[in-house]
Amino acid sequence: MKPIPPERYIDGVRQGDRRMIGKAITLLESRAARDRGLAQQVLDALTPHAGRGLRIAISGPPGVGKSTFVEVFGHHAIEQGHRVGVLAIDPSSRLSGGSILGDKLRMPRLSSHDDAFIRPSPAGEDLGGVARRTREAIVVLEAAGFDRILVETVGVGQSETVAAGMTDLFILLALPNAGDEIQGIKRGTMEFVHLLVVNKADGDQQQAAQQAAHTLEQALHLMHPPEPDWSVPVLTASAREDLGLEKIWQAVERFHGMMQASGRMAARRREQSLAWMWALVREGLEQRLREHPAVNLEQGLLERAVKAGRTAPAEAAERLLMLFSRPL
């Protein structure tokens, strides 16, 4: 198949051609070495057109109803005149084989809407790779005119930190069983949550949800707020029955306004860019290390020696690093 020239990607994305948006994300996702130059070229051309929207991370434990929440929340955004992009960070790597992407099954209305673009990403082998692809997909979607980007993630390992590092606002969903819930939320997570929502507040769960919200509110008082002028609201909602979404939307807007007025939004993004640069440096270093001919040559030998106990790990590491830094 003939390669597609960079202008077609760039113009297509800028014109909102869904086929080219899809293909541009594929290009940026590609792990093939030959795609790298082109991908970088496209990304560089699109970056100046991105960044005008609001990037929202949505996290929560399995079963909390994230996709249903995204479906309903996304609809509210569209009703307010926004265009919504949905991405997911799902690092659940599989031993072998591919992945099953069922996101759209849970978002049937949003997925058939012209003002929404949902791109489920296959599970990657490492979080770094997943993070890079999601970050770049945000650029593509924003350059295509989507101004509310929802990044769905699971509260597993470091994925929440990664999601917080590429978004402006972090919404955490919780379940209405107060006692266990506090313990279920990692302390580290609480430090970057801007909005806490107790979901599934419907039917016979309403009271439990109120109670959970109350307990969470008290727990939050003891914590350092993520932004100086922002006290984290704790709201209840039922995405399934579309209850309480209005309030959440208002809180989001309020946060957005506050962050823009105070200049914190721009500052936060600058900090994120810096952190991102270093993340890329680390990722690049690792990749170069893996591909370094001299390292490759001795790697197996040293691994066997360490395994057999003939060489100390520190000594072997030093040897590999020396090979890497020595001029070829």
């Binding site: 084989g97 591919g98 992945s99 992407l101 759209k104 099954l105």
Partner: peptide
């Protein structure tokens, strides 16, 4: 998926 495909499911 077990063979190695990435599988999208539609509603």
């Amino acid at each position: 998926a077990d063979m190695g495909f990435d599988v999208d499911l539609g509603p």
